[in-house]
């Protein structure tokens, strides 16, 4: 039996969503700290410009496209869940998971190529940041996809529909982080 506490909503924001907002706030400072450090180093190392030119912008752009599209499917899943359309919500959730898989696959291909060219984690501090920031983000992608897969199991039975929105919000945040990682790591040179 669920505690009564879980059903109260003194703020007017449902508890689950409120918690996701706080989670996102804590993630902002996590990525913020890492990226602040990166920007400081980047601005004071002219040599990094040439190194950043070695990253593959087209793969990065493709991945941005994939994530933006998966954000669309995530929000369509939310819309379907609001309309109590369990099949639609389930379908769009799995489209989003598919997007995550494509994203991670492209990333794997990209990293393999780079490592084969000799650009590894320890090649230089630029590459350390590159793998560190993109890797931390990729972990979030994998986590988000896992959560959505778990949530989709209940959704198919029409239970816990509000969770579709919650994992969607998290997914949009993962997308937002990538929107900033893309220019920081790929475009600026």
């Amino acid at each position: 039996m669920r505690p009564i506490a879980t059903t109260r909503s003194a703020t007017g924001i449902p508890t689950g969503r409120l918690a996701v907002w706080w989670l996102i706030a804590s993630e902002i400072v996590l990525f913020g700290g890492l990226l602040s450090a990166y920007i400081m180093y980047r601005l004071s190392h002219d040599a990094w410009t040439a190194q950043a030119a070695q990253t593959n912008m087209w793969l990065g752009a493709t991945n941005t496209f994939v994530l933006l599209t998966s954000s669309l499917t995530a929000v369509l899943a939310h819309k379907a869940a609001d309309n109590n359309d369990t099949d639609g919500a389930f379908k769009y959730l799995w489209f989003t998971i598919l997007g995550a898989l494509i994203f991670v696959s492209i990333k794997a291909f990209e990293w393999t190529t780079e490592i084969q060219h000799g650009y590894t984690l320890t090649s230089s501090t630029f590459w350390s940041f590159y793998y560190c920031a993109a890797g931390l983000h990729a972990l979030h992608v994998i986590a988000g996809a896992t959560i959505m897969a778990i949530v989709s199991m209940d959704v198919r039975k029409g239970k816990e529909m509000q969770r579709v929105e919650l994992c969607g919000l998290y997914w949009h945040f993962v997308d937002l982080v990538w929107i900033f990682l893309f220019p920081l790591l790929y475009i600026a040179k």
Binding site: W22, A25, S26, E27, I28, V29, L30, F31, G32, G33, L34, S36, A37, L121, T122, T125, S128, F129, C132, L136
Partner: peptide, 25 residues
């Protein structure tokens, strides 16, 4: 706690890489 710990978690990852993987953050 929540607003301040993020940068240190990122820093802990960086330090861990410095210790174990030989990065130079």
């Amino acid at each position: 706690f929540m607003a301040s710990v993020g940068p240190l978690i990122a820093g802990a990852v960086m330090l861990f890489f410095d210790q174990q993987l030989g990065t130079a953050f």
